[in-house]
Nucleic acid binder design. Structure first.
Length: 705
RNA sequence: GGGCGACUAGCUCAGUUGGUUAGAGCGUUUGGUCGACAUCCAAAAGGUCACAAGUUCGAAUCUUGUGUCGCCCACCA
């Protein structure tokens, strides 16, 4: 018996060597799989890794995410499939730029005023460093992905093909340039899509102002300088005496103005006085109303969040400073009717940075979502793809049934530049300059525009041989991506390839701490999968991620749980020690298994049955059950029951009885190693190295059956 | 305002299609072992499976309602 079994199992000393061994074997690349695994009838099995953002290390969510997929891939590889797990990294446009700008800020610098190419290069270097760290994290977790196919969203061929998609969509009328109301982040100087923003309940003063014969309510007095239209509901009896489009003279902030009444159903009779004035440039609702009645639109707040000259004496003042001053002035003019200090409303913030978003009007590129959403729903109805976590299907459908055109322009450099050119009022869409006098659109694509094409781009769409792996087998990702990522991949897949990029969609929940609380840096309850792996072993960490973690639900993670599986790893190690030390004089290959008693033969059969069951559980996404079953089998059945029952014969004088038990235990241990491998790849491979029943090949490609 | 989910042992959670005494990890108590076990083994205490009604031979599991908590969506001036 190898001396290593004299000591308890020490994960840290074996793990990195084993990973290197796997990499050297080339088996992560399905092209290299041995004959027995890729015979003529071998099918493809493929998973595209949701590319982690290349701006930081892996967190516990990634750990769960990657482990679940790795279990699926490892199982299918052993089951004889050509299994591909394709890794990559996402440049994560705005998010990365935000992270990078914080870094600049710490250094007392700012991106504004920096040369575009210099800035890009600096972020690129910063990202590459993080990307390498992230990749070493994946290796630490034992993720068996094919590094030879590693892809980054900003590598030249991906950039070029993503731009091609835009050009094609432009030709097909699916993208357009429009001057519409956008979500503007004044601090980071870029527009955002709807899903990049969030709401926060806030308590702000709500003001009632006298506006001619009306009392209007607003929480934003600073936008009201140019309000020349007042809106009431057509059925509002309080205003029945006034006519639609009737004009009034109104004494307002900076003197007399002419105002016009509009009767439209958007006005809420229940809200305040039922009358409101509109500011199309700085409100989405008002913008839509202005478009409907073809009203003029005027900018009041500039791109930095300061008031423009239209605000008169307040010009150049930041809005939060100007607000009380404006109210004071209105008070002096006797126009303040009432102030409600208990008013609660939802304020729209930038999801990433928490900056209050200012609606602005700006020319941007939009994807027309209607036809794409329709395609996507039709395909779902056809059963082309399915949700393993049914609860997400409803959410998904609801979102798809109400598509909002997608703003894909971002005013940042960190991304794929939009292939569009301007000259005067003309626009040309192409990768090359159309000629003299044209200037390139400086904007880049929303990051989801490229990651939405990820399955296609990584597999070399349109014409690479790797497209044989398309569509992929399953998309397993976090539930927070149910809108952001998954629908876009389906839409692009259907649009470009006429086929959804995956058959099954499986969402895992959030990883919470030991008390069921969401992990966050500010709470200090963040658990790093890398730290866990280094302290307790990767195998133990992987088990803790998946046991009792059913599809679609949040899970809570504790060190105690990881520790329990560290003990399990050691238990397996000792089972091996015991069996090997008791079978050193035994020749397994030469033994006639017909000599086994019926009971003994049945034990082997049962273990085979369990193996088949574990396989079927993995295929059907019951990994939370599969992992628990194999755990209990090894501990309670193999160790506590069978092994204990064998002890007498092993130390007894009856040589034939002893031989039977030796055969039995070796056979059962082999099955256990196979069954455990997808979950606990390191320790099982380590044991396999000098296991008497191992074939010449690595356990990673040992046939499941 | 709409939707989704959860409510099972002290804590964190499993429980695939309804089927015998409801499970795990951690924690607690008792005893044993330390010649496979940086430990392990045996055993114990602890649950009216949120509440109510219904379907059924039978419900933690299906239906309806109530309560509590959490999450998501939404153009609340």
């Amino acid at each position: 018996m190898n001396e290593k079994y004299q000591k308890p199992y020490d994960a840290t000393t074996v793990e990195s060597d084993i990973y290197t061994m796997w990499e050297k074997s080339g088996y992560f690349n399905p092209d290299n799989l041995p004959e027995n695994a890729t015979g003529e009838r071998a099918e493809n099995y493929s998973i595209i890794m949701p590319p982690p953002n290349a701006n930081g290390r892996l967190h516990a969510g990634h750990g769960t995410d990657m482990t679940l997929k790795d279990i699926m891939v490892r199982y299918h590889r052993m089951a004889g499939k050509k299994a591909l797990f394709l890794p990559g990294a996402d440049h994560a446009g705005f998010e990365t730029q935000g992270v990078f700008e914080k870094k600049l800020q710490k250094e007392g610098r700012s991106r504004f005023g920096m040369d575009r190419d210099d800035l890009y290069q600096e972020i690129y270097d910063f990202v590459m460093e993080n990307k390498h760290a992230m990749e070493s994290d994946l290796k630490q977790l034992g993720i068996s992905c094919d590094w030879s196919r590693n892809t980054f969203t900003l590598q030249p061929d991906v950039v070029s093909r993503v731009q091609d998609t835009f050009i094609k969509m432009h030709e097909d009328g699916l993208v357009y340039r429009g001057k519409r109301s956008i979500h503007w982040n004044p601090k980071f100087q870029t527009s955002l899509s709807d899903i990049e923003t969030k709401f926060e309940q806030r308590k702000d003063p709500f003001y009632y102002f006298q506006y001619g014969p009306f009392v209007i309510g607003t929480a934003r007095p600073e936008t009201k300088f140019a309000d020349k239209y007042i809106v009431v509901h057509p059925d509002d009896k309080r205003y029945a005496q006034y006519k639609h489009m009737q004009e009034f003279e109104v004494e307002w902030i900076n003197g007399k103005i002419k105002a016009t009444l509009i009767k439209d159903e958007v006005a809420d009779m229940e809200m305040g006085s039922g009358a409101m004035t509109i500011t199309p440039w700085h409100s989405q609702v008002d913008f839509e109303l202005a478009e409907k009645y073809d009203l003029p639109m005027e900018q009041i707040i500039d791109w930095d969040g300061k008031l423009l000259p239209i605000a008169g004496e307040f010009a150049g003042t930041k809005i939060h400073i100007a607000r009380p001053q404006i109210v004071e002035k209105l008070q002096e003019k006797g126009l303040v009717v009432e102030i409600d200090h208990d008013y609660e409303h939802a304020v729209r913030l930038c999801e990433r940075t928490g900056v209050v978003v200012e609606p602005q009007i700006k020319d941007q590129w939009y994807v027309k979502m209607g036809p794409l959403a329709e395609m996507t729903l039709k395909s779902l109805d056809n059963g082309d793809y399915r949700f393993i976590t049914k609860q997400h299907e409803k959410i998904f459908r609801h979102w798809m049934e109400n598509p909002i055109d997608w703003n894909i322009s971002r005013q940042i450099v960190w991304g794929i530049q939009i292939p569009a050119w301007f000259k005067g009022g003309d626009i040309t869409v192409s990768k090359e300059s159309p000629g003299e006098g044209w200037t390139r659109d400086p904007d880049t694509f929303d990051t989801w525009f490229s990651s939405g094409q990820w399955p296609l781009m990584t597999l070399g769409y349109p014409d690479s041989k790797d497209m044989e792996y398309y569509p992929t087998s399953v998309m397993e990702t976090g539930a927070d991506l149910v809108f952001k990522w998954v629908p876009r991949m389906i839409m692009f897949g259907l649009y470009l390839r006429k086929e959804v990029p995956f058959k099954d969609i499986y969402f895992h929940g959030m990883v919470l701490d030991a008390r069921g609380v969401k992990m966050s840096k500010s709470k200090g309850n963040v658990m790093s999968p890398i730290d866990l792996a280094q302290n307790f072993g990767t195998d133990a960490t992987r088990m803790a991620f998946v046991v009792a973690n059913p599809p679609g639900a949040d899970m809570s993670l504790s060190e105690d749980k990881v520790r329990a599986y560290k003990k399990f790893a050691n238990k397996l190690w000792n089972i091996t020690r015991f069996i090997l030390s008791n079978t050193e004089d035994f020749d397994y290959a030469a033994y006639d298994k017909n000599l086994l008693t019926k009971t003994e033969a049945e034990l082997i059969e049962k273990s085979q049955e369990l193996k088949a069951q574990i396989g079927s559980d993995i295929e059907n996404y019951r990994i939370h059950l599969a992992s628990e079953k194999v755990y209990h089998y090894v501990w309670d059945t193999l160790a506590s029951s069978i092994l204990e029952a064998c002890k007498d014969d092993l130390s007894g004088d009856d040589d034939t009885a002893k031989a039977r038990k030796q055969y039995l235990l070796l056979a059962l241990l082999r099955d256990s190693l196979v069954m455990l491998h997808p979950f606990m790849p390191f320790i099982t491979e380590e044991i396999w190295k000098d296991f008497p029943l191992a074939d010449k090949n690595l356990l990673i490609v040992h046939p499941w059956q």
